[in-house]
Amino acid sequence: MVALFNILVFPGFIFLGVYALLFEFLDRRIYARLQNRMGPPWFQPLADFLKLIGKEAVIPAEADKKVFPALPIFALAAVTTAFLYVPIWSGNSLLPFSGDLIVVLYLLTIPTLTFFLAGWYSTSVYATVGSMRALTQLFSYEVPLFMALLAPALLADSWSISGISQFYAAHPLYILINIPAFVVAIVSCQGKLERVPFDMPEAETEIVSGTFVEYSGRFYAVFRMAIDAELVVVAAIIAAIFLPFFTANPVVGFILFVVKTIIILFILAVFRSVMARIRIEQMVKFCWKYLVPLAIIQIIVNILLKGVLPL
């Protein structure tokens, strides 16, 4: 019963949904304020979601009738599962086990793959170009993102998110070592979340909305929800690994979680408002030329430090 409550209500499905909508609102509001605009009212994401749910969902005649509607659910399910392994109210997540960092990272790859498949099965030209770009992009940001998140794990000598945050909570000064990895993680997760400057798979002004061009109604609503939830999960993971401050009190711990994720969200929103969308080949070049070497240096430094520092 408690497990069911945990999975469905808190911190599982319903909490994630509400928090994701709140996050979308905050993201849009911060983005608007950075641009000197009013921005949407607080209920706008919910209103968008309900409106999409109520709209007619069209499946293109050429699309695969079974795979097409199933893909949004896959994306949402993968993200929701990943959320169960992220610490929220204390240093421990709901179901911590050794190696859950790897599992979460792979679960977070599933949405990108569903975006690719969604574009591919839509059979529209825009969607095909979008899905090609989604996959090309996956190969360029995934490597630096993984390395940036694994470097702190090497120093902490733990492969679980909870273990890593507990280690850094015990040794707060070691967080400073991971600052390059933090930068790499922030930059490459913009690619994972498909936000400017790495939003080529969607690129509204170029390929309409890329992979999602044929999606409508409730299918698109679920996809949107999955994207918002992915934003929450990525922010929560980065907060857990790079900002591991928490207390024993669950209420204070939860408030701390909210504050930390909003700080990460603010950084992401600033990042997306100050740059132009770059071309896909420029992104591949950028990721492999700058981000990967930086992440490799971080890993080497962490391995060396591990031998030197008294742990």
Binding site: Q35, N36, V196, A203, T205, A276, R277
Partner: peptide, 16 residues
């Protein structure tokens, strides 16, 4: 031009 290359902040400022 800003909007076409995904630089919406420039769009908002120059239109303001």
């Amino acid at each position: 031009a800003g909007h076409e290359v995904g630089f919406d902040t420039l769009l908002m400022y120059s239109w303001r």
